[in-house]
Amino acid sequence: MQEHDMSWVRTEMVLAQPAPASVTGLGAWVRKNLIASTGDTILTIVGIALVAMILPQIINWAFINAVWTGPDRTVCATVAQGGIQPDGWTGACWAFVNAKFGQFMLGRYPIEERWRPILVAILFVALLVPMLMPKVPRKGLNAVLLFFVLPIVAFVLLVGGMFGLPHVETSLWGGLLVTLSLSFVGIAVSLPLGIVLALGRRSKMPIIKTLCVVFIETVRGIPLITVLFFASVMLPLFLPEGVSFDKFLRALIGVSLFAAAYMAEVVRGGLQAIPKGQYEGADSLGLGYWQKMYFIVMPQALKLVIPGIVNTFIGMFKDTSLVIIISMFDLLGIVKQNFSDANWATAQTARSGLIFAAFVFWLFCFGMSRYSMYTERRLDTGHKR
């Protein structure tokens, strides 16, 4: 029997080869994103030219020619042709931000008691960071501590009046403390309340559905300023004599209800995007209504509307600046309030303060946006095999 030549048959698996150099590395990224076509190339050139023209001026103003420390506005006077120009654009007056930093963060909170909001901030970060990390265990315990225990501890520490802590009125709160407090409570309340309202609006019970529709459409039909004004000024008129609520608490309620109405519509959009077969499959398994929603429908719906949910959170974070209408001062409000300080009252310090506030708002909003994108990628399992 003739033997066949098997020398051409491979006896070992071929090792994985690296991708071609033309599709990897910086050069490939540039070709794909910056010069893929004639239009892309033109836009890239125009963009580089604009950056080259603007960026050096920004660096000079914000860093090189900036004034970082000083007792008053005189340190920010800039020497240029023609003499002293206190309101010139030569450099930023970060000395103003440095001198007022404590107020920007905590408002008029008593200096000797500022360790209390600082401790609350440390606890908040210590609980939030592991909550945002997917691989950290004991998420249930972490959530209970963050959303239930921390608010109680924060209330005791910030307000005081118990356990030997001096009472600090909320009218003394301000700055980033107010911004983060309103945002955290608004986020923690609006999402679950929005889910309940969305389910109520899709309910087959006429009374429940009507109540939810009326609430959602009424709140969405009026601006947040009106809600805050009503909660702060009008609400006390409807309360029994001798009954009153703290102004900050009224603002918390107003912001939370306003955000919940918008959140309800976002969640309802996710519920409507779930195929009917998912509901029927859950029914075929004998699951009850709440089991079906908790285990089958709601996880899929919330995953679909992550961008909308985070967009609502970001909008609510920025809208906290509107509490100035009820004489409360968030970060932006406390920055603008300090413009009236005679020691720092110049246009240059005003510009520096506003840019600082804008940067802080951008930092938090950008962080939320990037984390939502990461969460979307992590949960995008629809096309995995």
Score class of each variant (00 low, 15 high):
209 K>M: 12
145 L>I: 09
286 G>Q: 01
383 H>C: 10
209 K>Y: 01
68 W>H: 00
143 A>S: 11
90 T>V: 02
291 Q>D: 07
108 R>E: 15
127 L>W: 05
313 F>L: 15
116 R>K: 06
380 D>Y: 09
4 H>S: 14
17 Q>Y: 01
275 P>G: 03
113 E>C: 06
168 V>K: 04
130 P>L: 03
259 A>D: 11
138 R>Y: 09
159 V>D: 11
170 T>E: 12
346 T>E: 02
130 P>D: 03
96 F>I: 02
239 L>W: 08
296 I>K: 12
326 I>S: 07
117 P>L: 03
119 L>M: 13
121 A>P: 09
240 P>R: 06
157 L>W: 02
222 I>F: 13
23 V>T: 13
47 G>A: 11
87 D>R: 06
325 I>A: 15
49 A>R: 08
301 A>N: 09
363 L>S: 14
44 T>S: 15
310 V>A: 10
362 W>E: 13
286 G>K: 02
372 S>E: 13
348 Q>E: 11
200 G>S: 07
73 R>S: 14
329 F>S: 15
37 S>Y: 08
312 T>Y: 02
320 T>I: 13
282 A>N: 00
191 L>Y: 00
210 T>W: 12
262 Y>E: 05
267 V>G: 01
207 I>S: 11
115 W>L: 06
49 A>P: 06
234 M>P: 02
376 E>V: 14
127 L>E: 07
184 F>T: 02
123 L>F: 14
202 R>W: 01
175 G>D: 03
225 I>T: 10
356 F>Q: 06
185 V>P: 10
70 G>C: 03
38 T>F: 13
269 G>A: 15
159 V>G: 01
308 G>T: 09
371 Y>F: 13
100 K>T: 06
179 T>L: 08
369 S>E: 13
55 L>S: 04
260 A>C: 01
122 I>N: 05
121 A>R: 06
54 I>N: 05
186 G>R: 02
260 A>T: 05
307 P>I: 04
138 R>M: 11
343 N>G: 15
346 T>Q: 01
62 A>P: 04
29 W>V: 04
143 A>G: 06
282 A>S: 12
25 G>K: 03
120 V>F: 01
251 A>S: 15
254 G>V: 04
319 D>V: 02
385 R>S: 12
336 K>I: 05
125 V>F: 05
353 G>I: 04
53 M>G: 06
134 P>H: 08
152 I>Q: 15
220 R>L: 07
383 H>W: 06
313 F>N: 11
370 R>H: 07
125 V>D: 10
67 V>Q: 04
60 N>V: 08
104 F>C: 09
365 C>E: 15
142 N>L: 15
172 L>F: 03
328 M>G: 12
237 L>D: 00
61 W>I: 03
18 P>S: 01
25 G>P: 12
236 P>K: 06
241 E>S: 13
232 S>G: 12
325 I>E: 12
115 W>M: 04
229 F>C: 00
74 T>R: 11
2 Q>T: 14
299 P>H: 00
287 L>Q: 00
60 N>F: 03
31 R>S: 14
332 L>A: 15
167 H>Y: 15
201 R>E: 15
345 A>E: 08
204 K>Q: 15
